[in-house]
Every structure is written in structure tokens, then in C-alpha cells.
């Protein structure tokens, strides 16, 4: 499988700060989440990949092109959404995306068509003709995403696309990121300092810590089922009775918020699902759900 991004021993030394430390990565097609705390080296990695910042040592290729020798060719086929504000307030999203499409090498007519198309895809309708200064943060992020897609890139680098968004707008943006990766067929590298939001959209997750690779693997590897079952019944009183009954049957059980967490108990030699169903029936409580407890990406840090 062709690697979209490949780095070997990549190091970036800003004098006093070591932003990237001997980083070797292989990132394939699909959506890859790049996770790390602020200052972990995410933005520096993106700038090196765009050929804007030369690495101190090591090498990196993007779409098979070398970041030092072929920087212009990389930038022609990569879309970039910066972390900070980058929209002039007195220009409309429509004009701005057309202009930036031309700056990526599209002829004027094609840039117009593409701008209309990508603005429709990111969900900016009539407001695309208004100056961007009056946009909400969510609309600004959409306009920033549109300019990154304008020239039909093969890879998009999204630096904190959900930064500053409220929960609803955050969900919308993550949905868009997912569409860009799955329906549009682009490779996507999306950064975040929040681990939780990337487990939903990304196929792979790379975790950086102080410029070093902490872990890189498929998202589902992070989310392996732990074997614990979560049970919800209606009513706090019913929950207490249910908990006592299950404990009496020999299942290690703890209350976790409004749920009961049942740790695996293989020595009982019976199906815990059946036991839960029968106990609920015997007690006459309303059983809402039984679900497997998945790990969260955050747990990786707890383990490390």
C-alpha cells in the first residue's frame, strides 16, 4: 500500500526547543488522527510536511514527494487548514475560495466552479456571498475547510478544525471531516488535542508526545472491548436491588454513574447476559440496555 506520509528520523530543532525528535511515521490512505497536547509538535510536523520548515535532520515524503526537493509539487496537491484565523473579514467566502483556488493553479473558470462546489459541500449556502467578518466561528471553520478542498487535493492537513467550536458545531465539523475522507476519497491528517473526538472519525491514530511518537495504530486497536459489561435499569432503587442481586450471584459489580459495571467473571461458568436477563425478570425491574464497555483513547495515556 502506498504511504501518503512517510518520515524517517525526522528531527526539528528550534535552538532551545526540540519540536520533533527522531520521528519515524508511516501514514497510509484514509483518515488519520494526529493527537498530542499543545506543543507536542503537531503543527511543526505539518509545516515540515508542507515544505515550509526544513527539518534539522531526517527525511520526509508526502505523496511520494520529498519535502525539501519537491515542496512546490507537494503544496499543489495538498490542502491545508491552519489552526489560527486566516480569513480576511472584508472578503466573501465565495471570492476568497475562488482566489485561493487560482493560487493553487486552477484556471479562473475552473476555480469558480470548484469554489461553488466545495462551498456547497461544506454547507455554506447564501452566506457565501457575505463578507466573512460577520461569520460565526462554525461558518469560518467551514470556509477554511472549503479553501483547503478548492483545488481537489489528494491529501488534506487539518490543524485543529474543531478549535473554538461549540459541541453542535464540533459534531458538524467532525461529520464533514468524515465525509471528506470517506465520500470524497481524500487522505486526511487531522490534528486535535482532544483524543475523544478523533476516535469517532479516524481510521488510524498517531499520538505525539514532546515531538516523539508515543503510539501509532488503528483506531479500533485503541478501542478494544475490555470484557466489562455495562447494564442500565430504570430507577435508582431498581439499580440498587439489581446490583445486590447480581453481587449475590457472584458477579463482581460496581455502580458507575447511572450504570452498573460488571467485570468478567469466567469462574462462574455461565453466560452473564442470561444471568442479567433472568435477574431483571425475577426482580421485575425494567432493563434498558446491556453494552460492552469499550476503552477510550485517553486510556492509552493512562497506560503509558
Amino acid at each position: 500500500m502506498e504511504q501518503v506520509i512517510r518520515t524517517r528520523g525526522l528531527t526539528k530543532d528550534y535552538g532551545s526547543v526540540l519540536a520533533l525528535d527522531d520521528l519515524s511515521l508511516d501514514i497510509g490512505p484514509g483518515i488519520t488522527g494526529l493527537v498530542g497536547a499543545n506543543g507536542a509538535g503537531k503543527s511543526t510536523l505539518i509545516k515540515v510536511l508542507l515544505g515550509l520548515v526544513p527539518p534539522s535532520s531526517g527525511e520526509a515524503t508526502v505523496l511520494g514527494l520529498d519535502v525539501i526537493r519537491d515542496a512546490a509539487a507537494i503544496r499543489a496537491r495538498v490542502g491545508y487548514l491552519p489552526e489560527h484565523d486566516c480569513l480576511p473579514p472584508d472578503v466573501s467566502a465565495s471570492d476568497f475560495v475562488v482566489h485561493l483556488g487560482m493560487m493553487s493553479g486552477l484556471p479562473r473558470v475552473a476555480a469558480r466552479e470548484r469554489a461553488a462546489e466545495v462551498l456547497r459541500h461544506v454547507g455554506l449556502a447564501e452566506e457565501r456571498y457575505r463578507p466573512m467578518g460577520g461569520y460565526s466561528t462554525g461558518m469560518k471553520q467551514r470556509a477554511k475547510l472549503a479553501q483547503a478542498l478548492a483545488h481537489d487535493p489528494r491529501l488534506v492537513l487539518l490543524d485543529e478544525p474543531t478549535n473554538g467550536l461549540d459541541p453542535a458545531a464540533r459534531d458538524d465539523m467532525l461529520g464533514l471531516v468524515q465525509r471528506v475522507g470517506q465520500d470524497f476519497g481524500f487522505s486526511v491528517l487531522v490534528t486535535s488535542h482532544l483524543l475523544g473526538e478523533l476516535e469517532r472519525v479516524s481510521d488510524n491514530v498517531v499520538i505525539l508526545d514532546s515531538g516523539r511518537l508515543l503510539r501509532a495504530s488503528q483506531t479500533r486497536d485503541f478501542l478494544d472491548a475490555t470484557g466489562t459489561l455495562l447494564v442500565e435499569v430504570i430507577g435508582a432503587d431498581a439499580q440498587t436491588r439489581m446490583g445486590h442481586a447480581l453481587a449475590a450471584a457472584g458477579v463482581p459489580v460496581q455502580a458507575r454513574g447511572g450504570l452498573l459495571a460488571l467485570d468478567p467473571a469466567p469462574e462462574l461458568g455461565l453466560d452473564v447476559h442470561d444471568l442479567i436477563r433472568d435477574t431483571a425478570f425475577d426482580l421485575g425491574v425494567g432493563l434498558v440496555r446491556i453494552q460492552a464497555d469499550h476503552r477510550r483513547i485517553e486510556d492509552v495515556f493512562a497506560d503509558a
Binding site: A72, H84, D85, L87
Partner: peptide
Amino acid sequence: HGSIALYLARPLS
């Protein structure tokens, strides 16, 4: 306005 970052991420040096 920070739009320089968008220009620099495009083919022109």
C-alpha cells in the same frame, strides 16, 4: 488576518 499562511501553503514560494 493570517491569510499569509494559506498563500504559503500553496505552490508559490
